[in-house]
Each structure stands twice: as C-alpha cells, then as structure tokens.
Design a protein around this nucleic acid. Sequence first.
DNA 1: AAGTGGTCTAGACCACAAA
DNA 2: TTGTGGTCTAGACCACTTT
Lengths: 240, 240
Amino acid sequence: MSSLSEQALPLYQRVHDAVMARIVSGDLTPGAMLPSEFDLAAQYSVSQGTARKALNKLEQSGLVERHQGKGTFVATTTPETSLFHFFRLRHQDESQAIPQPFSETIRRRAANAKEAQVLSLEARGAVFEIARVRCIKKTKVCHETSVLNADLFPGLKERSPLPNALYPLYQRSYGVTIVRADEQLRAMEATSSIANMLAVSEATPVLEVERRAFDIVGRVVELRFSFYLTSQLHYSVSLR
Amino acid sequence: MSSLSEQALPLYQRVHDAVMARIVSGDLTPGAMLPSEFDLAAQYSVSQGTARKALNKLEQSGLVERHQGKGTFVATTTPETSLFHFFRLRHQDESQAIPQPFSETIRRRAANAKEAQVLSLEARGAVFEIARVRCIKKTKVCHETSVLNADLFPGLKERSPLPNALYPLYQRSYGVTIVRADEQLRAMEATSSIANMLAVSEATPVLEVERRAFDIVGRVVELRFSFYLTSQLHYSVSLR
DNA sequence: AAGTGGTCTAGACCACAAA
DNA sequence: TTGTGGTCTAGACCACTTT
C-alpha cells in the first residue's frame, strides 16, 4: 500500500506517476512483470478501470508492454523493435542501413561550455567522448562523436570496443533508457579532419546531424555529432 | 441511426471508423462540431463509455479536437498549431523559420514514371508542378518543387500566387488534409540550375529533402523536392 | 481451471463553457 | 442553468495464455 500524497491530480495520473517512479528508480527493471490491473487497483485503492487507464497511459508512452492473457511488463528495448529506432540512415530502397564499426576511440576529458550546459554539468565536469568511424561494405560512411556525463557511465572506457548500437548498452549496463532524440540537420562541406577520417576529398558535401538524446525523466544524457556521406544512403524520417 | 454491419470488430472501433468515414467523405468538415458522447452513443446504440473511447481514439490520431465544456470538433489545421508542422526549418535558436515567397511558377504537364508510380497515376497522367523560391531577410534559402495529381486540384494554376503555406490551401479549397509526410534527406552539391536559382556558387552544399505527403486515407497526394541552404538555418526533428 | 488483459455497460459526480 | 467532456466506480462477459 503506497500513499499518494499529491492533491488535485487525477487518480489514474497518480497511479501512472507512482508506477513510473518505480521503473525509473530501478525497482522494476526492464522485462519485469507489473502487478495485474486488479492487484494494482488494490495497492492504490482505486478501481480496476482507473488502474487500467494508468497502465494504458504507460503503454502509450512506451514504458510498458501489455499482452492479453500474459500480463504487463516493463518495456525492453528489444533488438528487433527499436535497436535502430534512432538510427535513421537508409539504403535507396528504404531498407535499414547498418554500418559496421571501423574504428573507435574513447577519451575521458573535461566538458566544454556547450557540453556542460546541454548535459547539465558543472563547468568543466568530466565527460566521456566516444568517436567512431563506421562503414558499409568497406566504404566509410559516417563519423560520430558522442559525449556523455562520465558520472552516469562509470567504467565506460574499459568496455571498449563498444557494441555497434550504444543505447542498448546504456540501458542494460547503466539503466539509462533513451526515449527521445532531438536532431538538427545541416548540409556542409567536410572539414579537412572529417574528410581525412572518411577518406574523401575536402569540401565533399556531408550531412551533419547534431543530436540530444533524452532519457525517461527528460534529462539530456548524450550529445552527439554525426557526419554522414549521403551519395548512396539517405536520412529517413516520418512526420505526422 | 447508422447500421454497423461488420462483425468481429470491437464496438468502439466500429464507431471510430464510422465517424472517420463521415469526416473523410466531407459529411463532417473541418471545424464542424460532432455529436456529444451521449448523442453519438444513442446513434450507434452503444454506451457513453464506448462512444467516448471512439472519440478519444479519433483525438489521438489528430482527426478531432475535444474541449471540456464545449464539445468535439473536426480538427482544423490552424495557423497557430500546425500550419508549419511539416516545415522543419529552424533558426539557430530553434525558433520557427518562415521563408517568404520570392518567385513561383505553376505548370500543368504529364507525370514522369516515378511521379506516376508514387502518386498512383496512370502513365503520363496530368500533374501540376509548383516551383517556388523562398527567402528569409532577402536571402534566398530554399527551392521547392511540388508535384500534385491534377485531378485532385482543379483550377490550381489559376490560384497563383499561392499562399505561403500550401497544406491549408489543399485542405480548405480541395478537402485534402495532409496528416503525414515521409522525408528522405541528403547532403549534395548544388546543381548549376539550383545554384543559379538560389544565387550561390555551383557545388555549394545543399540539403536535399524528398517528401511524400499522405492524406487521411493514406494516399500520397504530393511529391516534393526541396533544396535548402543550411549555413544559417537547420532542419529540426524530434524522434521518439 | 485459473489468471490475465480487452471490451462494454450504466450509472455517478466533477470541471468547464456558454446562454 | 444547461450541456459538454473528464474522472471514477463496480460490476459483467469475453479472449487469450499458462498450468
């Protein structure tokens, strides 16, 4: 029996928030089964319909999955469904492009002013910088630099080489679930540094993507700059 | 009293589909008020809760808007909310960039093979091609070419000059509501033609956006190619 | 057979907006 | 004051999964 101290919020919202808090705190881990509608209703002294509405809201936001006859489970970022949800590069036939790791360097350093501001760190707080070049069919197609709050990812440097997809690593090993990514895209000429790493001539047009990745509670946990060669690939997005 | 012949579908789904059919057919036009939950329930012989679930689903898909104390209304693509929902260009501070019309040409011509396929036309069916250059603070920043099924937009050519935002025009004057846009983005060198129209040197990097715009029933009604200069602006998108 | 979520009902009361 | 949508309850029955 948990107490729901807040006033003025609808009951279903309080149940929703309480369950979400248990997920965020790690009390309920991805894959864990939640109490049934009936049990949840009893725990929070509401009707089954109200518990159902809270669970449905959690399902809509992607935090839990519901299956008739089986139960409600904390969502797992499964490889099939969303391993590459935030990776928007596609082949010309719109099939998912999956670049393979080519090189990787991880550094621990002090954040610059912009990074500290975006990641909500103290000035010059510690960050990890992951720089990777990836290729498709032996052709280098992207250079990505991810910057993370070092405190949230202890021992990250020792995990090198990192898996191809970083977000499942964040979730499984650090309990950080990425649910949203805001991206800014520009077309620019490759700098000499980028051109060198991607083995193209200087001033080749590249697609620059600046990403802020958010976790469940809305914190920016990753700032990433990517540079893509888009002669054979494109960035695909659906607006609705 | 409408009959809901289909079997095996949940009642709320049948009510949802029936109301959606009325909107798509033009029986209920944007801005029109829907029956209240109580009336709708009576019309389809279901409980108020079931009618409510159907209306909530319509609201989630953006087809209607609900306001406590006022009623439920067919969604209007209002200037404030979504006039520029599909226009993703932003200033550096993330404020909405609103380019002003600079030039416009509208042609009626036969569709090429790709256009016919994408727009589901017969080979060499009639299309309208709208080519526009737009600028911000007197600097040309984009060149856009939209291709439409001519049969869906009778007399479009005579409406020139078209308003800055095309989708409200599609909706108000032709009953075509755009609800989704799939976009493919690439960084490329400006062709001599594009460079000329945007008054930049050839081979300047430009952001190419290829868009397919879908209406309520899932038809592709517009194929658009845009070329943006992204030195002062960027394309902004939120993935979740 | 038991337990789960999915649908559906028929009411109740509340908050908000307009006449 | 009336009508609207928003919340909430307490039940019913169904479909699906597991034991």
